[in-house]
Design a binder for these strands. Structure first.
Length: 649
DNA sequence: ACGCTCACTTAGTATTCCTTTG
DNA sequence: CAAAGGAATACTAAGTGAGCGT
């Protein structure tokens, strides 16, 4: 029995066994965006940057999207990423704005002076004075292997850039992605465009393509790699590390600090989560010419690879990123190289986050009084503010901003639709929707009768696909929250809730006993937080087999115990006692393993739980911190290690 | 007020590493 | 010593929210 079944009495057990990627669709589905094969911008070889200019039809009219009475971003601009660059340049916003403002800019600025460089926002806070780093590491160039694609029964050796893309697809044969039409179609569209103007343009039908040889080659390579002796692997790894060492550090205000993701993302097929309309699109190879470098104006500019140059070098001291580039699939997304989790810049913002959450403790009663008052006698907008705040407070839901249609259809509190909630009188609500990462939120909660009534009212006369909270959005909720506590936003409630619950449970539920037992209590508290925040993970492929094995072990042990008992011999008493104990331990183990199979403890540990709660508990209970924190976590939370044992969140 | 971009946090999964087991 | 199993780390997608321009 899983925790989720405990929470949700009516939930059927079988739901927990759904394999990754096959999680149930949400109760209400927005009409799927029409496939749009006119996307035009991926039709160039990887690495070649400028697509041919090409007119492009608009996607479906807004009316085809879900019949939502209120504004939803019309899709026109989600298409813009597919428009020829030339036309993009004329429009405002996005990557091109950044490009446009670049070259003019070698102007002075920072403190208070006259004119600012174009990258400096007026109100932004200065984050550093000096910043120096070595830039990024690029993935190795593609090495052609000459393994053919079989087309219509005949082997075809592709050009290197064609072969590379074919391999992206071939190696994914045994993933769930390969079974999804959207993924395959997107890949195929991209691949066709790559072949289109080359010698293999005759490859026109997916059904005639056979990637088996490429896949087999990939498996062989994998085996070869595995067969390399261990010490040789180690040596190669050490050599690589040495080569990359300099990229792992950056110097900010004179301090040498760890860089996070200094490696440029390699090309491949986009692996969007859930029903992402763009899954399978080709992620292009990022070139130095795509990369913007941010460093101090007096710093040594990192060397681009020989024969290349950076797209741009800027000196923006109001941001903390070191390098950045535009994502080729989700073209308005930026990818950044940031400082690592152990850096002081991240530590500082972590501390600020937890201190803000602690401050919420002082305001939360006021906020609760406020939302109950507004529920009773507010105008409709105020009532919606009140109810969303209630849900954020009690259930720790996410904000839920409007999303473009070229993204998976997921929701948060402000975007909940009527079909996502089931009313179970007298006052229980059953939620069933897809949240961040398309993770299903399926929980029942008894709510205050006022909330139940207000929700009923909001849903009345609406269709399942209509928004419940049609008068508000996260900005409005946050504005309201900030009127009650400066700096308060929706997401603070998740941090507050998670840390508050951990603090409370650790104080109330830690048993006297061994470190192991205390650790079990910690994990139990951690688990409660994970369930609250709906942090899930896929069930590992081996889970069932592992459970079966454990079950066999349990049976064998129980049998042995029974036979020992039957003998009724005095000398067996000790044996029976130890065996009983071992059996109990095993049973507990089995139970925990099953309960945790879909629950992810790590996410809350890394992002939501004030480490000072944990460290103070460790001190009080004489539990060494490495019992509950990994080495990386200890480093990340270095700033919390000197906390007083009496620390209370 | 609204739409949109930018920067940064939060998230699940893939891969690697380390330990245990047979 | 290899294979299995599980923990830890690496990776990158997907959120939030400030702040800008209109």
């Amino acid at each position: 029995m899983t925790e989720r079944t405990m929470i949700l009495a009516t939930m059927s057990d079988s739901d927990d066994d759904v394999p990754l990627g096959a999680r149930m669709p949400q109760a209400v589905k927005r009409p799927a965006p029409k496939a749009d094969s006119s996307d035009s911008d991926d039709d160039v070889p990887l690495g070649a940057r400028m697509p041919a200019a090409k007119p492009k039809p608009k996607k479906k009219p807004a009316s085809a999207s879900k019949p939502k009475p209120k504004k939803r971003k019309v899709d026109s601009d989600s298409d813009s990423d597919d428009e020829p660059i030339g036309s993009l340049m004329k429009k405002s916003g996005g990557a091109k704005a950044r490009v446009a403002k670049s070259p003019a800019a070698k102007k002075r600025k920072s403190g208070g002076g006259a004119s600012s460089p174009p990258w400096v926002k007026s109100g932004a806070k200065k984050m550093w004075t000096t910043l120096e780093h070595c830039g990024v590491v690029f993935p190795p160039a593609y090495e052609p292997n000459g393994v053919p694609l079989t087309y219509d029964g005949k082997d075809v050796v592709l050009l290197p850039h064609e072969e590379e893309v074919a391999n992206f697809f071939a190696v994914m044969k045994d993933t769930d992605y390969a079974q999804k039409d959207v993924f395959v179609n997107n890949f195929w569209d991209g691949f066709k465009k790559i072949l289109r103007n080359g010698p293999h343009a005759h490859i026109k039908e997916f059904s005639k393509c056979d990637f088996t040889k490429m896949y087999a080659w990939h498996l062989e390579e994998r085996e070869k790699k595995k067969a390399i002796p261990n010490d040789e692997k180690k040596r190669a790894k050490a050599a690589k590390e040495k080569e990359e060492e300099k990229y792992t550090w950056a110097t900010i205000d004179g301090r040498k600090e760890k860089v996070g993701n200094y490696r440029v993302e390699p090309p491949g097929l986009f692996r969007g989560r859930g029903e992402h309309p763009k899954m399978g699109r080709i992620k292009k190879r990022i070139m130095p010419e795509d990369i913007t470098i941010n460093c101090g104006k007096d710093a040594k500019v990192p060397e681009p690879p020989p024969g290349h140059k950076w797209k741009e070098v800027i000196h923006n001291d109001t941001v903390t990123w070191l390098c950045g580039w535009n994502d080729s699939v989700n073209t308005k997304d930026w990818k950044y190289v940031q400082f690592g989790a152990t850096s002081s810049i991240k530590a500082e913002s972590d501390i600020a986050k937890y201190e803000k959450a602690r401050k919420l403790k002082d305001s939360v009663e006021k906020i609760r009084r406020d939302y109950f008052a507004k529920m009773k006698k507010g105008d409709p907008l105020e009532q919606q503010l009140a109810v969303t705040t209630y849900l954020v407070d009690k259930l720790a839901l996410r904000a839920g901003g409007e999303k473009d249609e070229d993204l998976a259809d997921t929701v948060g509190v402000c975007t909940l639709r009527v079909g996502h909630v089931e009313f179970m009188p007298p006052s229980t609500l059953k939620f069933d929707f897809l949240g961040k990462d398309s993770i299903r939120y399926l929980q029942e909660h008894e709510v205050d009768p006022l909330v139940f009534a207000a929700m009923s009212k909001f849903c009345k006369g609406k269709k399942p696909e209509h928004d419940i909270f049609d008068k508000i959005d996260p900005t409005k909720v946050n504005k309201h929250l900030q009127s009650l506590m400066p700096g308060l936003t929706i997401k603070v409630f998740r941090t507050y809730n998670a840390s508050y619950v951990l603090n409370k449970l650790l104080r109330e539920e830690t048993p006297d006993g061994t470190v192991m037992q205390k650790k079990a209590a910690y994990d139990a508290a951690n688990k409660e937080v994970a369930v609250l925040c709906n942090h899930q993970k896929g069930v590992s492929k081996a889970h069932d087999a592992q459970m079966e094995k454990l079950e066999d072990k349990r049976k064998a042990m129980a049998k042995e115990l029974a036979s020992l008992r039957k003998e009724k011999l005095d000398k067996n008493k000790g044996k029976i006692a130890t065996l009983k104990e071992r059996l109990a331990k095993l049973e507990l183990n089995i139970k925990m393993k099953d309960e945790l199979k879909t629950v992810s403890l790590g996410t809350s540990k890394i992002n939501y739980l004030d480490p000072r709660i944990t460290i103070a508990w460790c001190k009080r209970q004489e539990v060494p911190p490495p019992t509950v924190f990994t080495r990386a976590l200890i480093e990340k939370f270095n700033w919390s290690m000197e906390v007083e044992p009496t620390f209370d969140f």
